[in-house]
């Protein structure tokens, strides 16, 4: 009954149960954090704006992004993935989400940042709908935990209207 194998099995089961419980508690503890991140984005310049040979509109922007995401970090946070997306509606599409810039924040010390950048991913429409188009700039973040459930949220910021003419 109380052989070596039996005891080893009991010990292993107990250890794994405790470890799983601790992971669960760490994940649940994230819920007690109520973050209040802030962010601001400015479109500084339209570098160029054209219709590609295949008929889709493409625009290149210079952006100024500043954000304070320090409050997202808890003891169970491995990193925060943050990205800025342009979101707009076209006659054909209910929703277009185009990521313009993204970054990985590895620790709380880097969570308050300011960056001046052109769009990292190409801002291409499916079609030719960007002239005079209003779009929302939305800052999204995804909190990746050390263990457990992932969280995500966003701030919808002031919109921007593209010019009527290509340039």
């Amino acid at each position: 009954m109380h052989s070596f194998g039996y005891r080893a099995n009991a010990l292993l089961t107990f250890a794994i149960t405790i470890l799983a419980l601790m992971c669960a508690i760490a994940s649940v503890s994230d819920n007690f954090n109520s973050p209040s991140p802030t962010s601001q984005v400015q479109v500084l310049n339209i570098n160029w704006f054209q219709k590609k040979p295949d008929g889709d509109d493409e625009v290149s922007l210079t952006l100024n992004i500043s954000a304070n995401l320090e409050s997202l970090f808890t003891w169970n946070t491995k990193q925060v993935f943050v990205f800025l997306a342009a979101e707009y509606e076209t006659p054909k599409n209910m929703l277009n989400q185009v990521s313009l810039w993204d970054g990985i924040i590895p620790s709380k010390e880097h969570a308050k940042f300011w960056i001046h950048t052109t769009n990292k991913y190409r801002f291409i429409d499916q079609g030719s709908n960007l002239r005079g188009k209003d779009f929302n700039l939305t800052l999204h973040w995804h909190v990746m935990p050390k263990t457990g459930k992932m969280f995500s949220d966003k701030i919808v910021m002031s919109g921007y209207r593209l010019p009527q003419l290509y340039r």
């Binding site: 993935f81 006659p91 599409n93 209910m94 277009n96 989400q97 991913y121 499916q126």
Partner: peptide, 16 residues
């Protein structure tokens, strides 16, 4: 991998 672009059709709800 992570999704970076989404285009969702109005009529069919199909996504790219």
């Amino acid at each position: 991998h992570r999704v970076i672009k989404v285009h969702e059709r109005k009529d069919t709800g199909e996504v790219d």
